[in-house]
């Protein structure tokens, strides 16, 4: 197979990584055990980091490993440790959702169509020296995108504060949610034919 001027090594690397990425991604969403899922997700991210590297995005490849495979995955695993529960029926396959997935497939094939038309068949030529290195990205980041960069750091700060606030144990709110739930249940009961109060047990009768 000829992939438009790419070297054989390039091709082999791409195909191997692409197949692995797809495989692990599929594995991630089909595992019943969340720990397995999260591990295959880590594998997906590693493979992706390889693909990033093959795209000359060295800095991003490193970031991918550090942030995703490192930080985010640790977070996931902590949470799994807190709420690890086996699921009886992990999949909720309903016609509407399947239709939704099919809709997504259709959308993406359309995108492939339109993107494919604009792209050349061949791989782009040699990338300039230093493309994708820390120095090059840093120059763009701090010259052209200084404000978004600072804004992102604020976003991260807000996310941290938000995470703390949301997951904090607050008894009052929980009580309020429970009360609302209880009311809801009573309403639902009122709409059914409720048999009424159970009769008080008669003395001497078992």
């Amino acid at each position: 197979m000829n992939a438009g001027g790419a070297t054989a090594v390039d091709q082999v690397v791409f195909w191997v990584l692409a197949v692995l990425t797809t495989f692990f991604a599929g594995f991630t969403i089909t595992r019943r055990n969340p720990v397995t899922a999260v591990m295959s997700l880590v594998a997906t991210f590693f493979c992706l980091a390889g693909i990033y590297a093959s795209l000359s995005a060295h800095f991003l490849a490193v970031i991918q490993v550090l942030v995703y495979a490192g930080a985010i995955m640790v977070l996931f695993i902590f949470v799994i440790m807190i709420l690890n529960r086996e699921e009886v029926a992990p999949f909720s396959i309903r016609p509407l959702r399947v239709l939704g997935v099919l809709g997504g497939v259709y959308l993406l094939t359309k995108l492939v169509d339109v993107v494919g038309v604009g792209l050349p068949e061949a791989a782009p030529g040699v990338t300039p020296d230093g493309f994708g290195t820390v120095a090059a990205i840093g120059e763009v980041l701090f010259r052209d995108f200084l404000f978004p960069f600072e804004a992102i750091s604020v976003l991260l700060l807000v996310a941290i504060v938000g995470g703390v606030v949301v997951s904090r144990s607050h008894q009052k709110e929980v009580a309020a949610v429970e009360a609302a739930d209880y009311r809801h249940q009573i309403e639902e009961l009122a709409h059914h034919d409720y048999p009424g109060e159970p009769e008080a047990p008669t003395p001497g009768h078992h």
Partner: peptide, 9 residues
């Protein structure tokens, strides 16, 4: 989300 995907499609 499914409905959204169907609508977009």
């Amino acid at each position: 989300m499914a409905v959204f995907a169907i609508g977009a499609a």
